[in-house]
Design a protein around this nucleic acid. Structure first.
Lengths: 127, 127
DNA sequence: CTAATCTTTCCTGTAGCTGGAGAGTCAAGG
DNA sequence: CCTTGACTCTCCAGCTACAGGAAAGATTAG
């Protein structure tokens, strides 16, 4: 399986697959004589695993940890849970910040008449 | 006023003030004979304006637009409002995505016992 | 006068890719 | 056999919004 098919199967751009190999996250098992990367089923599964974890907002480093736990049959679910719980906490913190921001900005937007005249509570607030 | 005092007055790191000058966002009015940037009150006001806009999550390019509207005494508040409203829409979209993500991840975390055993719904979901 | 603090420019690195150049490889069609 | 088009390779640059650090000059306090 060449990189193109592997990328399609995993749902990732070819560039990204190559990038993951460069940083040692998911490397192709071997190369052809002419230097083409060959991917097997296991590698494709790992790529797809990473894609889903990335969709969940896990960082590359978190993905690396999750991947090694994924590979480790004697892992404890507590280890995985700890990573996910920490990530969940980050997301919730981000949510709180975003909510505060939104509320304040929404106030400004509704306060601004948005007409031809120059007076604008939004700029006033920023000044 | 040297860059250090200006940065303190505006609540920004010196590095950031220099960066804003480099990208032509807020430039120091002039330089001393020995090359030191001199900032005046107006420049400091602009720096503080940008800092607050950045706190609101506006991008540098949005700040550039807001700044030119801020400077333009014949601006219409509608122009400002349009930028803010667009940004608000982005924030709300981000909020929706984050909420969906959080809910799904929270489900997984609660589903995982987090003990010494290897079976883990989180990894199962990612695999 | 000296030591400490500021300031300058320039270069590098961050996260996570994406785009492009230029060159080589492969499979199919004529 | 040749060509064409699709695929792949490596390397380099750029994106956001700065942060860190080196080496050198400027300024200020004691």
């Amino acid at each position: 399986m060449n990189i193109g098919s592997a990328a399609r199967a995993a749902g990732l751009p070819v560039k990204t697959v190559r990038y993951y190999a460069d940083i040692g996250l998911v490397e192709a098992p071997d190369r052809t004589q002419t230097g083409y990367r060959r991917y097997d089923e296991a590698a494709v599964r790992k790529l797809a695993f990473v894609r889903r974890a990335r969709d969940f907002g896990f960082s590359i480093e978190e993905c690396r940890e999750l991947l090694s736990l994924y590979e480790d049959k004697s892992r404890s679910s507590a280890d995985v849970r700890a990573i996910a719980a920490a990530h969940l906490e980050e997301i919730e913190e981000k949510q709180r910040q975003l909510a505060a921001l939104r509320d304040e900005l929404a106030l400004l937007v509704t306060a601004c008449r948005g007409d031809d005249r120059p007076d604008c509570p939004i700029l006033d607030r920023l000044a």
